[in-house]
Amino acid sequence: MKTVFINGSPKKKLSASGYFLDVQCFFTRGNKVKENLRNKSDHERILNTIADADTVVFCLPLYVDGVPSHVLSFMKEMELFCTERKLQLNVYVISNSGFIEGNQSRVLFQVFENFCKRSGVHWCGGIGVGGGVMLNVLRIVFLIQIGILLLNFVLSGVHNGNWLPIDALINFATQALMIIFFNLGVFWYTFRMGMAIKKGNSCGKKYTRIMIPSFVFILFADIFFIIISLFQGGIFRGWLSKK
């Protein structure tokens, strides 16, 4: 069974869509192929890849309540490709947005459902991930924490002869558990989607959110953008003003 994972993020590296695609790939069995869809030059290559596939999983960011324009362009070509060849594909979608509510992706799901009807392929549901940017940042933080933990081992070993400092381990485990907690919804539904892909079933439309109150999330999101804007200089260039 061949499953093609299409990353619809325009970013070249460290995209949230790439992260969720990797998680879904982990929970999926069989022959797996990953493709990046960034512009028109990718269309032909991806269409050739899906020609003999059983399943396609789109993983993409939510742009202005809907599908990013470069993905819409690809869908129009894919519709022609699928109808001409009468492909019997199962299509799944993972959409992520920076907003805390995953159900802000419901228009995007309807668009994909309409696309599947026109293309003669099977709409098998999707996951709307809320707080996608935050989860992606936490993924990067987790990798940094692994580096810090290893550095702690070395420093503690060299200075004190203790190569397994318990306090550093406890600190790492606490933070790792917190990150896992925030990702629970994503892990559960991607696991379920993996099972559905294996059986060729629909997984329905599922939505996740970060399990903290919205006002706390908004506070963190604002702090995140203030820090980024400070580093990138936008805060000194009429950050919130009418231009």
């Binding site: 742009y63 202005v64 809907g66 599908v67 990013p68 324009s69 470069h70 819409l72 362009s73 869908m75 129009k76 907003f99 228009v107 309807q110 668009v111 994909f112 309409n114 696309f115 026109r118 919205s214 908004i218 999101a221 604002d222 953008f225 980024i228 804007s229 950050w239 919130l240």
Partner: peptide, 27 residues
């Protein structure tokens, strides 16, 4: 109409206009 959404050319214009809002969030 493109699957119940804007055409790619129109959606592109909207995607490129997110700075009508600011990075700060609200309800």
């Amino acid at each position: 109409n493109c699957y119940g959404a804007y055409s790619p050319a129109v959606k592109n214009v909207l995607d490129r206009s997110i700075a009508t809002s600011t990075p700060m969030s609200t309800y």
